[in-house]
């Protein structure tokens, strides 16, 4: 069983502390965990710290068949679109950060299946620089999946997608997490998505972990008022699922 645990981790840029003393006991394979918090709360830096791209205090414990940082894949917000590379090449590249120049048939089959799953096969031979923001984000997700991660940290993967695509991607991630025993942590701004698709939610604000637990327990009117400064209710939608209704911002 894939598992990720954080023990009192912190990170700083120079003398400025981004966050400190964040401990999360168990993020397990087969589940989606939402990471929420206001802008500049340190979500991206937390992901980088977990992925080992930023050094800092504390320990990150990874329990995965492939162990170590290799099991973790961080999908940054930046989609990097200047390169003269086709979508297909860029996804193949993501799966091969070293080693032989030769590309095996199996690698290509893997890429094809990812593009198919994300329904971006028609974009395969377009250059990255010709894509829209949303299309780039889908390519970015494809790149992350191409690395066959066991722990996937996705930094706002749906921010540029239309509503239909947002739902599609979150469904896909939930299915893939269950199928491949993958632990997926997703930084989100849409809290309804967190409630609907993520089993657990972590909340960070002002450089510390404010709350962690089952999404329905964590995302409450009190949290929305304290962290996001909005008046909101949690209602039930026609399917019987929780739905945040925002009444207004607290000025």
């Amino acid at each position: 069983m894939v598992a990720l645990a954080l023990n009192a981790i912190g990170a700083r840029y120079g003398s400025r502390a981004i966050f400190s003393d964040i401990s999360v006991d168990m993020i397990t394979g087969g589940t989606l965990t939402a990471l929420i918090g206001p802008n500049a709360a340190g979500k991206s830096t937390l992901f980088k710290r977990i992925a080992g791209l930023v050094k800092g205090a504390g320990t990150v414990t990874v329990d995965a068949p492939r162990r170590g940082e290799d099991a973790i894949c961080y999908m940054p917000q930046d989609t990097g679109a200047n390169a003269v590379l086709t979508v297909y090449e860029s996804v193949l590249l993501a799966s091969r950060s070293g080693g032989s120049w030769l590309v095996k048939e199996g690698d290509l089959v893997h890429i094809d299946s990812i593009l198919e799953a994300l329904r971006i096969t028609p974009l395969a031979f377009r250059n990255l620089c010709e894509l829209s923001g949303g299309q780039r984000q889908l390519v970015s997700i494809a790149q992350a999946l191409a690395r066959r991660p066991e722990i996937l940290l996705m930094d706002e993967p749906t921010s540029a997608l239309d509503l239909h695509r947002q739902i599609e991607v979150l469904h896909l991630m939930r299915d893939l997490a269950r199928r491949d025993d993958m632990a997926v942590v997703i930084a989100l701004h849409d809290l309804n998505h967190a409630l609907r698709y993520c089993e657990r939610t972590l909340v960070i604000a002002d450089g510390r972990l404010v709350a962690a637990g089952p999404s329905e327990d964590v995302i409450t009117p009190a949290l929305l008022r304290d962290i996001y400064k909005v008046d909101a209710r949690i209602e039930c939608c026609s399917q019987g699922k929780p739905l945040i209704v925002v009444d207004g911002a607290i000025l």
Partner: peptide, 19 residues
């Protein structure tokens, strides 16, 4: 070769590929 190509996707992305 692979790492150099990855650099063209931007530093964050290349780093996330293990470069």
């Amino acid at each position: 070769a692979w790492q150099l190509t990855a650099l063209r996707l931007g530093d964050d992305k290349a780093a996330s590929f293990g470069v």
